[in-house]
Design a protein around this nucleic acid. Sequence first.
DNA 1: CGGTTGTTTCGGCCGCACCCGAAGCGTTGG
DNA 2: CCAACGCTTCGGGTGCGGCCGAAACAACCG
Lengths: 226, 226
Amino acid sequence: MREGPDITRIAALIGDPARAAILQALMSGKALTAGELAIEAGVTPQTASGHLRMLSEAGLTAPRAQGRHRYYAIRDAEVAETLEALSGLAAAKGHLRTRTGPRDAELRAARVCYDHLAGARAVQIYDHLARSGYLLVDSDAMTLSVDGAAFLTDLGVDTARPPTSRRPLCRACLDWSERRSHLGGALGAAILTRFLEAGWARRAEASRHVRFTPAGTRVLDAAFTG
Amino acid sequence: MREGPDITRIAALIGDPARAAILQALMSGKALTAGELAIEAGVTPQTASGHLRMLSEAGLTAPRAQGRHRYYAIRDAEVAETLEALSGLAAAKGHLRTRTGPRDAELRAARVCYDHLAGARAVQIYDHLARSGYLLVDSDAMTLSVDGAAFLTDLGVDTARPPTSRRPLCRACLDWSERRSHLGGALGAAILTRFLEAGWARRAEASRHVRFTPAGTRVLDAAFTG
DNA sequence: CGGTTGTTTCGGCCGCACCCGAAGCGTTGG
DNA sequence: CCAACGCTTCGGGTGCGGCCGAAACAACCG
């Protein structure tokens, strides 16, 4: 029969422990060097190099040479979304991790999803925008209302979408921990950028976790509540 | 590091050719016997049995004994959605299938996605419902308006949600061929049921393809346009 | 230019897991 | 009740693919 697109290739790529570790490390949105990814995956550099070659040929990662380093990153938002979907399924079906530990709670609170925020905090932001009429959720795409643009601009978020990219401004992204939607797309990326730049949130070193500063928590509670 | 849920296990399960074939066959929403699935996957019954055991233990499929047969089905909508997401990624990244053939076009027009319609026709239905104010797309969940319930009831769709299930009535499901949302959830399932029962559409024998009858095309063009 | 570091390519080892043949259960039917 | 059928379990063969050591490339650095 063999109907529809061929799932096997991509699923098999993600299904290897070393490659999965690489992809999950890259879900932080940072571009990492081949050597760093090798450590992350617990394999030697030459093994990681082979994996990265496969991932890049399949269009999951994008290599970028810079000096004698070679940086790899998640190729695009669609790859990131699919990985999140898989995370959701794994979280739902997978046997609960033996010890969920504090790290898990941190991730559920706030983390980076490729290039925008995810987790409880991100859902809070999304909810407020939608409920205040700042984000107009249409049949398919969402649009930012005039009021919404003003609201975000006040906070210092750059709502001007770069005209070069064909990427949608707003996009609902499914959150694996909250099982709800949060804001992705160019706007989601802009909001994360603003939070980091303003010192309202800081990224953990080698993790997807995002820690909100006291100032950031204040902004969040003041502007994104109700 | 090992952050977040463990993707590897589930991705590796889907990444095997035989198991992927089994899952894709089950995406028709029908429950199939182990023997049928063995043929579908091109392996012997004992091999398929082993695969089905793994899939069921991981929570991807649900076995149901009936007489001397044993029927397997996709476990729940979440599994189906993740498989669709993978299909989307594979369609986008995967090398184009050598010959896309007429079968592919048929699938893109209308197919079954676990228990509801997908493809161009499904997107048409979803668009009309949303644009007519029948489907109120809120921040997160969608709700069916009073007008919408009346509209669908007129068409013979059962809009009364079975109280036993905790399943949401309406749910946006990402369509891999249209790259847009279509209607899933209990309501999506009810609509498909009605279309089949009224003779407006017929399912292909061993495929996900759905063929609309002339009467069904008329209904679709009359009720779901504009 | 050697030396160092980061990355890739090549070859070969090894183990996992996919696969089937044979045999063991449970169900149906004559 | 025995035969037929469908499915599963068990055991062994085998091939693919991940892994590393060694070596070749490439880029910065003294």
